[in-house]
Design a protein around this nucleic acid. Structure first.
Lengths: 113, 113
DNA sequence: CCTATTGTTCGATGTTCGTCAAACATCAAT
DNA sequence: ATTGATGTTTGACGAACATCGAACAATAGG
C-alpha cells in the first residue's frame, strides 16, 4: 500500500464526479481544500465521523479524480487536482459558488496557532 | 395521486441536486430536456430500462428540484425548473457544458415526423 | 360501460453506500 | 526492537438504491 492510486482524468466520468460530490462530507472536504488553495493536512480535518469513515470518503474523492492524496512520512496531505479544471472546466467553481451547501461545518483544526 | 409534488427550492440542498445528477440515466434525461428548451413528452423518452424504472428516476429528479412534471390527460410532460437557476446559478450549465457525460444515448423518439 | 393508453406504485431482489470498531501497515523517534 | 502517531483495510450492519414485473389509477375514446 505504498503509493495511492490516482486515476487518469480520461478514466473518470462526469457522473463519477457528481456522485462523489453528492455526499455532504465529501462536498465539505472539497470546499475546504478548495478554499485553502493548497495542501491540507489529513489529520487537520475535523468531521464528526470515525477516521475509517473519513478515509473511505477520501478514497472516493481520490478515485473520482477530485483530490490528490500525497503521503509524507506518517502523514498525508490533500489538495485539489488541477487537471480537473481542464477536463470539466468551470464545474467545480460553479458547484462551490452555490453557498447553501451542506449541514457540515467546514472546520479544520488550526494549522497554526 | 392526482397532482405530483414539487418541493420548494429552499427545501433542496446542493447535495440532493448533485446526487440526483450522479446517475447516468438521470443526467441524460436532464441534458435531453435542457437541450429541448421546452417540454418533452414523457412517453418520448427512450432508455433501455423498464418504464417503472424510468418513473422512479423521474421522481428523483422531481424531488431534487430539477424538473417539473406536468400531467395532461393521460400523458405527462417534462421540463426544466427555471427557479433552479436562481438558487444555484450557473450550476446546470456548467455541468452540461462538460461533454463526455454518460454512456446513454440521448435519444428521444421523434416528436414529429 | 368497456377498452386502450399512459404512467405510478407495490413487492421483491440484488447491489451499493455510509458507518463503526478492530486489526493492520507504515514511518519516526526513542 | 519498542513505542507512538497516522491512516488504510477489513468485516459487519442497516439503509438506500436501481431494477423489474405485476397490479393499480386516471383519462380518453368508443
Amino acid at each position: 500500500m505504498r503509493n495511492l492510486d490516482h486515476p487518469r482524468m480520461n478514466q473518470i466520468s462526469l457522473t463519477d464526479v457528481l456522485t462523489a460530490l453528492g455526499d455532504p462530507i465529501r462536498l465539505a472536504i472539497v470546499e475546504l481544500v478548495f478554499r485553502h488553495k493548497g495542501e491540507v493536512p489529513w489529520g487537520d480535518l475535523e468531521f464528526n465521523v470515525n477516521k475509517a469513515t473519513l478515509s473511505h470518503h477520501m478514497k472516493k474523492l481520490r478515485l473520482a479524480g477530485l483530490i490528490e492524496h500525497r503521503k509524507e512520512g506518517t502523514r498525508c496531505f490533500i489538495s485539489l487536482r488541477r487537471d480537473l479544471e481542464k477536463t470539466y472546466p468551470g464545474l467545480l467553481s460553479a458547484i462551490l459558488k452555490s453557498k447553501r451547501t451542506c449541514p457540515y461545518a467546514l472546520v479544520a483544526k488550526r494549522t497554526q496557532d
